[in-house]
Design a protein around this nucleic acid. Structure first.
Lengths: 346, 346
DNA sequence: TTGAAAGCGCTAACAC
DNA sequence: GTGTTAGCGCTTTCAA
């Protein structure tokens, strides 16, 4: 590890001068000749600042805390973390991720993170829902990811759920489907409500009437399969908008048993939460990919802009190599999903 | 943040004394009366050491680096990270996780981690394979997770792949299956080789002859489905050992199309890589759960024991709340998977 | 325009 | 046994 001291020696100046230059606070304070000399020596020696040492003085560590409940164990989370890491590393930050189970360990972990001098927090949920951030996070820079603050005070980055439902349904209508079903989620959350509302609106905009019998909201379990089976036999839908790919699988299972082929006899559009699933089903499935990477990326960028109190308008999303190698058969149809960035309302 | 200084003031002693006591280096150096006084004041004030400040002196930060390629984007990884975090936090460490794509960014990220003074590294792979750890990691404490060092020099924690294959096949034999197929992976790796060898050995131990025609090694893609379809029609197996749950899905798809029911007409045992899958298929699928959490846990514990140069024999795996809530229908049969801990051979 | 000096919170020699 | 002192790498007055 090369230090400022070494640079100072080599350049024949003091450490303070080096500090000024390397922090770009030399304008009008250090002779530009000396400044550039210091800079070249630094580059030459491969100097990299020791963020921990500076933190002692400045109180800022360039470390972000990423807190999630179960989320880090979901495939869903991988992309978010990856995106957040990407923005962080692009802006010279590091991410410490922490998973909690329950409020008790949550506060423990937050305290631990704070001891490490975390500059701010990302608080992520598994699926967009109304959320109350722990009080121990009040007062620190904080951004919610895939979640909505109860009081609208905390900024967040989340998918446009209504539009997901609208676009998916629109797609099925355009594909010529006459009886479009919605296989949703029976838990109350923004993702569910928004998507179902979008489904309904798309139908109405197309001059169709919303029919409750075509909607089945289920959990991800055994009874779910039965519910979808009943929907199949009672209503004979020819199009399915599925809350996620796990639910799409029920449709596949039922179709296979009835000798129906997805993509020919029935059409299916599903939100692609788990990737593994959709990759296996994909030759026949139209997916809506939640932009997890982007969500994490913009959330981290927003957090950093909060911390540094400056806008990051010039930031650009990096080219990503796909996190999971693309399915090597037919590239499935994909519907783009847009993000919403909510500002604090106060 | 309460500092040692404050404690020292309140106790009427010097900071060094406080330091000695709070680091448990007071034995025979500080009067026990004073020591306990310092301790109570510390507890009272809720003192928590600032690991970053001490790192400046000691060179140790109590931060571990977790490096993975794609792994952090796989559901597979969630458990590992969770386990590693658990051991880390139990022993007073923090985990910084970093995902890389390709060697270039890998070295970048490693350098960044080193700047943060990481005490050691966990290097994780997506699936057990022979691995060459980056040279930039030489010289620092390092443990491989779900990977095997090329030269056997680096300690690792990995599943007992042979036994997975053996136990799975044994299970199918015990279930009365006559024609047991193996749906494996066509990539060369320890996981594949070990599991297929275990499959073969179990058959032979049961007095059966290994039949190549019952083995199909595929990727996770379109042609894979065809290969399984062919296997179905040519060999009519009544038992399937699947490399993972994604491959098990091909068997389900084929069975459904032929009117066969898993658990009645055919038996399937699969390694449960992706959880989402197996949870959906589970009422009928016997799964082998890779102990991801444990793998991460023991790997981190091993790393810390390397760093602190002490054995952690008294460490106990914590009770975990299941990372993903258990499937609420029939609890699927599960086969236990054991871990192997490899020491450095030199 | 530059450098000396102090100090962030903590540890570790070394005096006392 | 306990306090003094120096210093980890860096930032930040303040004096020159």
């Amino acid at each position: 590890m090369v230090t400022m001291k070494e640079i100072a020696n080599k350049a024949g100046v003091s450490v303070s001068t080096v500090s000024l230059v390397l922090n770009n606070r030399d304008e009008g304070r250090v002779k530009s000749e000396i400044a550039s000399n210091v800079r070249t020596i630094a580059k030459q020696l491969g100097y990299r600042a020791n963020p921990l040492a500076s933190s002692l003085r400045t109180g800022r560590t360039r470390i972000l805390g990423f807190i999630s409940e179960e989320v880090a164990t979901t495939l869903y989370a991988g992309g978010i973390i990856l995106g957040a890491q990407s923005a962080a590393s692009q802006l010279g930050y590091m991410l410490i991720t922490v998973s909690t189970d329950g409020k008790a360990s949550e506060n423990e972990e937050i305290a631990a993170l704070k001891r490490y001098g975390t500059d701010g927090f990302l608080y992520a949920k598994m699926s967009n829902r109304v959320t109350k951030a722990p009080k121990s996070l009040r007062g620190t820079p904080l951004v919610l990811v895939d979640a909505t603050d109860e009081e609208g005070l905390i900024p967040s980055v989340e998918p446009d759920e209504f539009r997901i439902g609208y676009d998916a349904t629109r797609r099925l209508i355009d594909a010529g489907c006459e009886r479009i079903a919605y296989v949703g989620c029976s838990e109350l959350m923004i993702a569910q409500e928004g998507r179902q509302a979008g489904y309904r609106k798309a139908l109405e905009d197309a001059g169709r009437t919303f029919d409750e019998r075509l909607v089945v909201n289920v959990l991800n379990n055994g009874p779910a399969l039965e519910a979808v089976r009943d929907l199949f036999d009672a209503e004979h839908p020819d199009g399915f908008f599925c809350f996620n790919d796990a639910r799409a699988w029920y449709v596949y299972e039922c179709a296979a048993r009835r000798g129906l082929t997805v993509g020919r006899d029935i059409s299916v559009v599903g939100v692609d939460n788990h990737r593994v699933f959709a990759e296996t089903l994909s030759p026949m499935l139209t997916t809506i990919e939640l932009p997890h990477f982007e969500m994490g990326y913009w959330a981290a960028a927003k957090l950093i802009s909060l911390i540094e109190d400056r806008s990051l308008h010039d930031l650009e999303l990096p080219e990503t190599t796909a996190a999971i190698p693309p399915f090597d058969a037919v590239e499935p149809a994909k519907i783009h999903c847009t993000l919403i960035e909510k500002e604090s309302v106060r």
